[in-house]
Computed example of a mutant assay.
Amino acid sequence: MIDEKTARENVIRAADELFYAHGVQAVGMDAVRTAAGVSLKRIYSLFASKDELIVAVLHHRTETWDNGLAGAAERATTARERILTIFDFLDGWFREPDFRGCAFINAHGELGASSSAVTGAVRAQKQAFQEYVARLVADAGAPPALAPQLAILAEGAQTTAAISGTPDAARHARAAAETLLDAAARVRG
């Protein structure tokens, strides 16, 4: 028998893959059980409800997102480049064969009206991303008002790429971000 930590990780990983590929509401707990190789009884001892599992998946996605952004930013040498790596990170993600849009936006679209726990997890991730962008903007010496504009570009690119089925939105959003950064630099200079 696998230990609790491994079982929990297996369930979260399986649920994440299933929810992202098919949608949260379309995936039943039996499918999660089969994919994770963990009994329903054990799953419900780890997660009191499907909502609790969805929130755990969203927390897992937050870690993945944060690590991806941090990894992309490591290659940058200036504050401006760190901002633009957000869009480079998105471009790489949009090119993955299993890209289905933002899991947070997708989950909120499916359950936001009926699950305060899911809404809370989605809002927390979006707020953390906005705070990350705000730190990068501050590091660049740009006006604070630029941060939400850049965050909206990134969020919009995710939705556009998912709907259009092409990664072009990342490139367009990056170009718009460069324009905004240039304009902010002119105002400062």
Rank of each mutant, 00 (worst) to 15 (best):
V38P: 06
G101D: 02
E81I: 08
L69V: 04
G109R: 03
E17A: 11
T34V: 13
A76H: 01
E74T: 11
A35L: 07
S114L: 06
A162I: 10
F129Y: 14
M1C: 07
F99A: 05
D30N: 12
I163D: 15
R82H: 14
R95Q: 01
V11E: 06
L69H: 01
R135A: 11
R75C: 01
A31V: 13
L53T: 01
A169S: 07
A147Q: 07
F19Q: 01
V38S: 08
T78M: 02
W93V: 05
L136S: 09
A161W: 11
H59E: 04
V11M: 03
V122D: 01
D139A: 12
A157K: 00
R75V: 04
T64E: 08
Q149P: 15
G101F: 09
T179Y: 02
A169F: 05
T62A: 02
N10Q: 13
I12C: 10
A113L: 06
A183E: 10
L69M: 11
F89D: 00
A7K: 09
E4C: 15
V27A: 02
D182H: 09
L58E: 00
L150G: 11
T34L: 08
F129N: 05
D139Y: 13
L18E: 05
E17C: 03
V118Q: 03
V137S: 02
A128D: 11
A134K: 05
A142N: 12
E17P: 06
A162G: 14
K50E: 06
H108R: 06
M1R: 09
V57K: 00
A7N: 11
S115G: 03
